[in-house]
Design a protein around this nucleic acid. Structure first.
Lengths: 214, 214
DNA sequence: CCAAATTAATCAATCGCTTGATTAATTTTG
DNA sequence: CAAAATTAATCAAGCGATTGATTAATTTGG
């Protein structure tokens, strides 16, 4: 059955994602990854060619689904700027909180000052998300729904940066919020609704500011 | 001269900070660090005991000055809540943009899901900054200057998260902003003033919102 | 339908290399 | 000259990757 083959590859990638998120690329050894996955070390090379191949496969796996989600929001012509923005916030936050291992990996990678083929690739992918967000804000400004003085570029940094701070520094944000943000129950019942509400209020206050942001 | 000794140690730490920021703890080898500093590999052990010793020394070096800056703002009783907050934003952003290598290191370290002695130590240090920010907001709420409905905890995430996004993902934020955020000239002339203005506007819009953040 | 042939999956063992650390020898300094 | 600073040489350990052998699964041929 070719289904089992895919399942096993996915199983290895799940384990690798966890180990990479925990130890970083260099800190994660192929022995750790194969151990976590419960397979022989040689299977990594067999399926993915190399350690780097495993790493890249993790990114490729997550990206397709993500892009689809993103575009489906932006292409919905029935929505106004504000509703579109709210949709984006909701679905984006859901996704990144659910896949926080992956986003820790991703963020570590684009935090490298040195340009590499991988950082370039990831940067251009992330830029697509940025552009969607950008576009929504810009359309809203043009339609008069949002304040003209809004700094769109830095608002992107706030949107993604706030999320990163909560999702990628779990010990710190757990200390700040007073509960374990890694626990699935807390994520669903406490973190997600609160973060969504907050983000919406923040965006509304800034984008619909009567007294211009001079 | 003991001064030269200190200078040499500082020189090594400068080099190490750069290499650690670029490659991460595991990706940075002692040979890279000694090469960057232009000293023999054994000097790292001679001065700092071990690779980990070098790493810890970098943190210890940066922390003292940082704490002092922080407290001097909070203890100034002559300032109202809003002015205090503005002072905090100004001086905090100046510091982290100037020491961005260090903050890339710091952030990578607290992004690790697994608790270690080091992540615990760093977390508790960062929490001091958080508490200062927290306290300023809380005082402002009590005095009636800020909206009661403000989510103080998540506002912390926005403040530090926005900064992180700009400072720690230089390629991405350069692509977003349209200029190289790593260049000192751009940092001083473009990035700092813009980020400060934006941050202040954002905080004002959210904290001084007339229509309550229901 | 079943046995032979072929392919896919898995394994332990090991390769060459780099790592962080230490040593003993040498140079510099006061 | 003695102490401190610096060096080159060396070490065991761990790294990613590959190997050849073995087993499991699938396809083929009579």
């Amino acid at each position: 059955m070719e289904k089992e083959k895919t399942d096993k590859k996915d199983h290895i990638l799940d384990a690798a994602e966890k180990v990479f998120a925990e130890h970083g690329y260099d800190g994660a050894s192929t022995r750790m990854i194969s151990g976590e996955a419960g397979v022989n070390m040689a299977m990594l090379s067999y399926y993915f060619g190399s350690k780097e191949g495993v790493f890249l496969a993790i990114f490729e796996r997550r990206i397709a689904a993500f892009q689809a989600t993103l575009l489906s929001i932006n292409n919905d012509e029935s929505l106004g700027a504000w509703d579109k923005l709210m949709q984006f916030v909701d679905r984006y936050l859901d996704k990144v909180i659910n896949n926080n291992c992956f986003h820790i990996m991703l963020n570590r990678e684009i935090s490298k000052p040195k340009k590499t083929e991988l950082t370039d690739k990831i940067t251009s992918i992330v830029m697509k998300n940025v552009h969607v967000f950008h576009q929504i804000i810009e359309d809203g400004v043009k339609s008069g729904a949002f304040s003209k003085e809004a700094d769109k570029e830095l608002l992107v940094a706030t949107m993604f940066g706030t999320k990163n701070y909560i999702v990628n520094t779990p010990h710190l944000s757990s200390a700040i919020l007073g509960y374990d943000v890694m626990e699935a129950k807390n994520q669903d019942e406490k973190l997600k609704p609160r973060l969504k509400t907050y983000m919406k209020n923040l965006l509304r206050a800034y984008l619909m500011n009567e007294n211009d942001n001079k």
